[in-house]
Design a protein around this nucleic acid. Structure first.
Lengths: 168, 168
DNA sequence: GGCAATTGTTGTCGTCAACAACAATCTTTC
DNA sequence: GAAAGATTGTTGTTGACGACAACAATTGCC
């Protein structure tokens, strides 16, 4: 895999010569992108955008976005966590989590309970409504995962998860 | 419904299921996250954040962000493209590309040349300065790619690129 | 020639990461 | 036990980014 290193030296092979102004046709369909093909970040970025859009669409009927889903899942699996703990675990800032929880609490899905052991912190719990809602969200999320499988293939998805297991 | 894990797929879950309670002092280190472990989107998201941060840091000395790099690369490989063509190819909005190009043009890396064949559009070119700068950016980007290899392994990175080739 | 479509541009809105500051509350240290 | 320092939740700001809408200039189509 040469990636960009091999082409950094001189003029590579500009396959698609788009000469001056000759772009009036349908060049947009066929723009050489060789230089980006070897960049993991670019591929991952495009893939992540696709995945999130499918997730948002698939969970659209319940109006749950990926970040909200991750919060609900973590709180559901670990009731009583503090906001700090959840933020750290999900890699989001506690400042951001505040708004997330404001929204989720307003929708009666989670509740903040003042901890008596550390009166600075809030113990997070799902409401009863939140539990049943999360069950439905998980079904929809599983459907979304099937879309991913359909897109990149079952084996590839499994391999992808294994490769990226260290980041979860 | 206990909502403890996504049992949709009967994964044996050999992972780190933290014994509950034992971590009441430093919960942050060991929060059960099994429910998210099977979600491709979450892993990809975290990975993408890691990749971008490393890219931004590695290209920090030249102050080039991933999106800027992708624009420069495409324009460098396909001189004369219109803004619309670049935007379409990179999957960004032309409205957004305007600001990107404003910045890059201000830094004398690219130039907008009014096309005489279609006086609505601009033909995009790298400046001479932009060409040499891009060469350096590509060397740094290659270094970044080596960081990725070091993180997930050479073979895994190659496989990842193959899996996601359809999204580039 | 007239009307629809395209291109670049400007603007708004909402999401998200990164900081900074703050009050309330632990925790440490003397 | 009190002062000093750290932590938690909160508010606010900044900037990158995606999605949309509107607009003038220009082009293509009929």
């Amino acid at each position: 895999m040469t990636a960009s290193a091999a082409r950094a030296d001189g003029r590579p092979s500009p396959r698609k010569r788009a000469g001056n102004g000759a772009a009036s046709r349908d060049v947009t369909d066929d723009v050489g992108l060789d230089a980006l093909a070897g960049h993991a970040g670019y591929a991952v970025r495009r893939f992540q955008i696709w995945i999130f859009q499918d997730f948002i669409k698939t969970l659209g009927e319940v109006d749950i976005r990926p970040t909200q889903y991750s919060v609900l899942t973590v709180v559901g699996a670990n009731p009583g966590l503090s906001q700090m703990a959840v933020a750290k675990r999900l890699g989001i800032e506690r400042a951001r989590l505040v708004h997330l929880l404001d929204s989720l609490e307003q929708r009666k899905l989670v509740k903040r309970i003042k901890s008596r052991k550390d009166r600075r912190s809030h113990a997070l719990h799902l409401t009863a409504q939140g539990e049943t809602a999360l069950a439905k969200f998980k079904r929809l999320a599983a459907e979304h995962e099937r879309h991913v499988e359909a897109k990149i293939g079952r084996a590839n998805r499994a391999h992808l998860l294994r490769i990226l297991a260290g980041f979860t």
